[in-house]
Design a binder for these strands. Structure first.
Lengths: 212, 212
DNA sequence: GGAGGAACCTACGCCGGAGTAAGATGGGGG
DNA sequence: CCCCCATCTTACTCCGGCGTAGGTTCCTCC
């Protein structure tokens, strides 16, 4: 670990756009490894093989740098989720694809998911809002599917999707932290099955269950 | 909001134990409202109607103060969960009770749940471990019930309980943040039903589902 | 080949907030 | 009645880390 990423040749100059990309990559590594607060601008600069003022020529401040990354990866997650749900018309497969999307997201891109799911800056309104918005958008995508194919009320469908998204997020994160205990495919399938059993045929058996 | 809690009579002396309790209460308010990093020892002291050194006569540092609270409320959650699962022998009722326990926890005690679920100090190993341990203990309690009444393998049962706990935590937090859209009892029931449909009769229908 | 500007550096200002020294105060036991 | 210790206070020190002033190098384009 602690691969220096791009500390190559402390003396190479880069065109502006290229440098910016690289700075973002370095920042991601540091923010992911240390969290927002423990991350130092000096370390990010070092990691990029550059001095601090360079960082400030590309981003007005630490916060903006962080927000840029948060924004980017939030968008990736929502997009993955959208693709998953559009990938098929079979709802059962949809559930599986949706969970796989979460696991993929968590497994991918240098653990960037920690920015979205485990940010230590949620107390800042801007960050909290972004986080919740991302969460809501995912839930809404799923909620739309549920509503479309059942007679569940809007409010109930929404709450159910919230629960499902929470399950996906939590189990994906858990799976990643305990790599090796269960292979990815199996974990996805298992949790997806739990979800599918939960929602499939909700209307049908509802009356019966209401009896209790 | 910003109820001063106990800023009563800036000049009253208190016996050691009583003062300690009060400091913990003040600290909880501030940590919950601001998070660990944005919380200032000065503010905690002020909130308790006392000066900073007093705080340091009761706790060696900011971190220890925080950990004391985290520990306490983590224990409360696990205990609530244990009680819920022991409250009945009917597994369906168990699921409901278990979810209710999460909602109760989130609804209770000055939003102390934010320390356990939304800590902005998870990057510190001590905190991360405590958080995960709490989470695991809850999952393990549920996992034990699942294993006890089904033939699901240990590993699978564990992953399923992880997912369920995640669902409970997420939906409870969401419900609290959007108070008013759904009454507590209804929300609990709805999500509990989702979970119950998911796990009940898992063995029975398993073979059939494996076909796909 | 030499201005000019873009990319980069060293070195510092400064501020918030954790933790501390040294002294004031007040009430219970001798 | 007065001493003593526990309680509490004011008023600092110190440090990490963000952001910046001012100067330097190297490439490009005329």
């Amino acid at each position: 670990m602690t691969a220096p990423s791009d500390a190559r040749a402390r003396g190479t100059r880069l065109p502006r756009v290229r440098r910016r990309r690289q700075l973002l990559a370095a920042a991601q590594e540091v923010f992911v490894a240390r969290g927002y607060h423990a991350a130092a601008m000096d370390e990010i600069a070092d990691r990029a093989g550059v001095s601090k003022p360079v960082l400030y020529q590309h981003f007005p401040g630490k916060l903006e740098l962080y927000l840029a990354l948060l924004e980017e990866h939030s968008e990736v997650l929502v997009e993955k989720q959208r693709e998953a749900l559009e990938s098929t018309d079979d709802n059962r497969q949809r559930v599986i694809a949706s969970f796989r999307a979460y696991f993929d997201f968590v497994a991918g891109d240098g653990e960037a998911f920690r920015l979205v799911f485990e940010s230590d800056l949620r107390n800042l309104p801007a960050v909290r809002e972004k986080s919740e918005e991302t969460f809501q958008r995912c839930a809404e995508l799923i909620g739309a599917v549920i509503r479309q194919d059942t007679s569940i009320s809007d409010e109930e469908a929404h709450l159910l999707s919230i629960g499902l998204v929470g399950m996906a997020e939590t189990s994906a994160r858990y799976w990643l932290n305990n790599h090796g205990s269960v292979p990815k495919g199996a974990a996805e399938q298992l949790v997806a099955r739990l979800a599918w059993r939960g929602i499939s045929g909700w209307d049908l058996h509802r009356a019966a269950e209401e009896q209790d």
